[in-house]
Design a protein around this nucleic acid. Structure first.
Lengths: 128, 128
DNA sequence: TAGCATCTATTACGATTGTAGGTGGACTCA
DNA sequence: TGAGTCCACCTACAATCGTAATAGATGCTA
């Protein structure tokens, strides 16, 4: 499993590390909004599981607390996420885009950005 | 649960019904490619579970076989799917689009279509 | 009508995910 | 150094998903 599948909660934990650098479990837990924050041991369990999946590792120790750091990049994880998502749509982009737009998730600016990115990318590929 | 969460396999089964109208379990099973086709009873189990979730129902009987029909629309299911997906990204579209484009999942045509759809939609909203 | 094919219904099981309790060890501060 | 706090580690458990076997009912065909 070069790119393990991450669940939503696992993603949120990785997010804490991606955004905040190496953290202790307590710190990860506290990145969750008070409202509906999972128990310390819940976060702990997920962190241990992420460790088994090699998504993160113990970087060092402070006192008796372990400090964890991400092993896989946000980008790689998101790529995996997108792939799975597209798989759900049978890989067809069209209904995905339609859905995004109709639900109002996609703004004119988003599309403009997309266009620019596409142009830049095709240019880069031609250059290469 | 007005809009139950559907897994990939469940989606594929619903897809058979959305595309092919009311079907018997055997027919649903046969919509899967021979290669890697799940066992009849596997499909059966999933259909039963979808029935419990009220995603489909028994429409009638032919011989001793039940014919199932979808109760939720493809559109509604996809909406739910997209929502969950965006939730994974914390609701921020930007990284999603970037990911789609960089992975080459999004073509120039897709973006152009999106643009047109957005224009039509904003026009309609203005008209209304 | 006997038998085979087909379906239904029930049951099972491992993996994954979210949830967290309990126990015991380590650290800190008074 | 004793008390309280914090942490690590282990264990548990329910829900969901994918997978399918088994057993019993039904229907078609020779």
């Amino acid at each position: 499993m070069r790119l393990p599948k991450l669940s939503k909660l696992e993603l949120q934990i990785m997010d804490a590390l991606w955004s905040g650098g190496p953290l202790a479990i307590r710190e990860i837990q506290e990145t969750f909004p008070q409202k509906g924050r999972p128990a310390y041991t819940t976060v702990q369990t997920m962190v241990y599981r992420l460790e088994v999946k090699k998504a993160l590792r113990r970087a060092r120790k402070i006192g008796n607390a372990h400090i964890f750091e991400a092993l896989i990049s946000r980008d790689a994880a998101q790529r995996r996420l997108v792939d799975d998502f597209l798989g759900m749509f049978g890989g067809r982009m069209q209904p995905v885009m339609a859905q995004l737009i109709e639900a109002g998730n996609l703004s004119t600016k988003d599309v403009a950005d997309a266009e620019k990115l596409l142009r830049d990318l095709s240019k880069k590929r031609k250059d290469a």
